[in-house]
Write a protein that binds this DNA or RNA. Sequence first.
DNA 1: ATATACATTATAATAATTCTAAACTATTGA
DNA 2: TCAATAGTTTAGAATTATTATAATGTATAT
Lengths: 142, 142
Amino acid sequence: MPKNCNFIEKLREVGLRPTKQRVKMCEVLFNREKTFHFTINDLVKIISEKMNEKISLATVYNTVHAFEKKGYLKEISIDSHKSYFDTNTSAHHHFFDEDTHQLIDIDKNDIDKINIKKNISGKKINSIEVLVRVASDNQNQK
Amino acid sequence: MPKNCNFIEKLREVGLRPTKQRVKMCEVLFNREKTFHFTINDLVKIISEKMNEKISLATVYNTVHAFEKKGYLKEISIDSHKSYFDTNTSAHHHFFDEDTHQLIDIDKNDIDKINIKKNISGKKINSIEVLVRVASDNQNQK
DNA sequence: ATATACATTATAATAATTCTAAACTATTGA
DNA sequence: TCAATAGTTTAGAATTATTATAATGTATAT
Ligand SMILES: [Mn+2]
Ligand SMILES: [Mn+2]
Ligand SMILES: [Zn+2]
Ligand SMILES: [Zn+2]
């Protein structure tokens, strides 16, 4: 019944000890319907608001990186000044809203397949990702 | 005859005083045939090796940002831990070589036009950029 | 030339991230 | 069970990249 059981097993599967802190973070990160994009600061804020216990900043960093290494999270580069993370770990495309600084996944069906005609010799393609920067359309002013 | 004249005028055009340091940086950045991708550290190293005079780190930061604001440079996000800059200021696509951490422009003709079928309502698209991560193809081992 | 606004510089301050080492906890197996 | 062990958390220190400060220097317009 406690949905935590999922997470305890999930953590064990990849060899991470299911500590209180890690299970708590799993709940915040993975008990969601939609992809979650966040910065470390977002996450610390959410945890300290939603939960009543304290968690160390170092632990949030450690845990995010542990999850990243185990394939539960992915780091996204849109802004060289901040680290964004993503619960969608597959190669995928994003809108980046320059007004709100929000990342939004682009549905696979909403973009035509990308075709690279010429690659670099001796190299293989690991991923192809598109970043679409959007901002509010201010043509609708009188 | 001195190619600096270009840069002195170029700087004046956008209202930047053509100081010794700025002209020097222009030479390093824009006296090239191909697009130049660099980090601030790269640039400081190049200047201090190629030139004989000292330049302050703060000036390099200031000048890069001044050039960025005036449209001579563009910041590129591939790695949330480092700021990369690009002398190609148009919206364009990149290979990122994960072995060497080198950025390489993708020629416009080497990629099909990207088509986004569904946009976010009330937002206009500012740019569409593709990042292709590549790495050495290690299938060619005996 | 002079005045003025703008730039450069060394250094200090800030912010994000990582390190350290001591205290704590989950797991193992006697 | 219950220690022994390996792994984890934590507060705070250290590191790194970047930005701010404020004194000094320089370009430009009279
Ligand atoms: Mn990282
Ligand atoms: Mn920047
Ligand atoms: Zn995403
Ligand atoms: Zn480029």
